[in-house]
Design a binder for these strands. Structure first.
Lengths: 337, 337
DNA sequence: TTGTATGCGTTATCAC
DNA sequence: GTGATAACGCATACAA
């Protein structure tokens, strides 16, 4: 494996000069430049990123810590970020937290040990790792949160405008006459501080239709819990006329539960969901969804991260609007109780 | 940031001893061990992985190069690998190739520069980067291919038994009376050397029902191409009675095309697909699929990779069987032409 | 059982 | 424009 010293020797220059041929070629005399470039080709020189990382205190990667890479939202975001990073010589160090701060801490330790240049992360619940993250930030790692952000969190963030999105969804349902609406999961400051559930509660109350207490339960946003909770809801004497799934995974569980209960989507019960997943336009009727601008998120994130790795910090605290896509899974609220 | 030297100084021992407290604690006297552990806690010592990487010539990550992280197969595999890596102090450096060897080379350069300890990769087409990969291997990087493997490729591999899987699928279709079956994509040694398409052709011929030349076209395995090709197939005078989608993304395109053509799944045209994606059991009838044992793959991969990073090389050239799941999207071949 | 010394390849500072 | 030199933090060979 050729090092920059080998290149320098072969070209008859110093390592400093040899490196400049790669980083600041304009500062070299054409003649010198050519000699070095020839030597680089001759030896197949490729820089050792680990040596550079040790010297500079950060490596050439961006850490991306998602909740779960299998959730399509995170998979798509990972791709967008990865693709855009390509033109910058940065790589992507992937980690997850399964929404749990112990797992998160384990992975943060690794990312910090690897000296990632920047960290894009979906925070887990609770203030658990804030101290650790602040230490990372102090050591020069740029940190930006995605998808979720606590008001007292000191970090930059870029996420969906959950409030606007929930409101857009509810206005859609209201316009169809729905008032008995159940959200798939209830906000809990300690256990489950999810914004979509929080705004759902708040906006419903504000609109004069507080969510029935029978509809309120703290569940996790996965297929299984969503399935079971939906079955429960559909069996209530006062069953909801519309269901609001707070992410794409929940929507799958809800959809299956509705089918298994022998009910028809739209006619018997309406379904509205976050995340525009492929299957939502393949069933019939198609599912009404609120789509996140994932491409835009990826673009803005990479831009912001690269700008902030070197150069001075430019704050970014951004909410992006969700887009309602209507396909037919929400029907008129029927008169039947 | 505390280094191991700081720890050593505070504990009044040498750096070597301090490190041993972490790596080989049994080799220290209880008293020494305690002193060092105290100092580690006192200083919040965490190892600098970049320094270790430089020194050892490889970092504490495994490179995972997929074709496209958005394809659920790769997303799920990434999660399985990531989860299992957690108990080993290794991280995951993620990259893709979009099936193109230029993109692949770019990312390989990065992975090699980062000195990944091992590389799990889905190869792109063509022999393009073999030379580069061999150089990586010579420098000590353990390499194993997934999902696809050329017979003359010198690397280990772990993938689905494509031949067995295709045969299982076809026997299912034959048992329902189908003979006019179209695979969504045709094998081409140069342009598109995909095994599933290859075995499809071969097994159909072997069985006495060579694929009609009207059904043969080289397409890429994405939703759009699959959609268009399916529309074309369904418009043929001798249209196929069954379609075989070679991955989950193709299946989506085919499904939509069938719907848009106003045909009924199973009654009018049967659909069989690779990959057991969530939506395939949510539509009705559910889609008959061939499922890959992704969890097992992740487990075996991590096991093999960790064993081969240190220790002597133990070869692994493994085909795992696919599992046919029947849900109803394949009906009897109708008599109508 | 513990300690000493060296070098991994790069980058940054400073001198020429 | 170019070059010499030092230091990043760790792992290893070797010495004690």
């Amino acid at each position: 494996m050729a090092t920059i010293n080998d290149v320098a020797k072969l070209a008859g220059v110093s390592p400093t000069t040899a490196k400049r041929a790669l980083n600041e070629p304009h500062k070299l005399q054409p003649h010198t430049l050519e000699k070095v470039q020839w030597a680089i080709r001759e030896l197949d020189y490729e820089p050792d990123l680990t040596a550079g990382a040790l010297r500079r205190g950060r490596n050439m990667t961006v850490g991306l810590l998602v909740a779960d890479i299998v959730e399509p939202f995170f998979a798509e975001l990972a791709r967008e970020v990865s693709v855009r990073l390509r033109s910058s010589n940065y790589g992507l160090l992937l980690a997850d937290n399964e929404y749990q701060s112990e797992i998160e801490l384990h992975n943060l330790r690794h990312l910090a040990g690897q000296r990632v240049s920047a960290l894009i992360m979906r925070p887990s619940y609770g203030p658990g790792n804030r101290e650790y993250l602040l230490k990372m930030q102090d050591k020069g790692t740029y940190i930006i949160e995605i998808d979720h952000h606590m008001p007292d969190s000191p970090f930059d963030f870029l996420m969906l405008d959950h409030e606007q999105s929930v409101r857009a969804g509810l206005e859609h349902l209201w316009s169809l006459g729905h008032t008995r609406i159940a959200g798939l999961g209830t906000y809990d400051a300690e256990l489950y501080p999810e914004w979509r559930a929080h705004h759902f509660d708040h906006i419903m109350r504000e609109h004069g239709h507080p969510v029935l207490s029978a509809y309120r339960e703290i569940i996790r946003y996965n297929e299984q819990d969503a399935y079971e909770f939906t079955r429960y809801l559909l069996n209530l004497p006062e069953r909801p006329t519309a269901l609001f799934a707070f992410n794409g995974t929940e929507a799958i569980g809800a959809y299956r539960a509705i089918q298994d209960a022998g009910l028809r989507i739209a006619e018997d019960v309406s379904l509205l969901a976050f995340d525009n997943l492929p299957w939502t336009h393949m069933v019939s009727p198609g599912i009404d969804v609120i789509e996140q601008p994932i491409k835009q998120m990826g673009e803005l994130l990479v831009q912001q991260v690269l700008k902030n790795i070197d150069g001075p910090r430019t704050p970014m605290q951004l909410l992006l609007p969700g887009k309602l896509i209507v396909r037919g899974s929400c029907g008129m609220a029927s008169a039947e109780s």
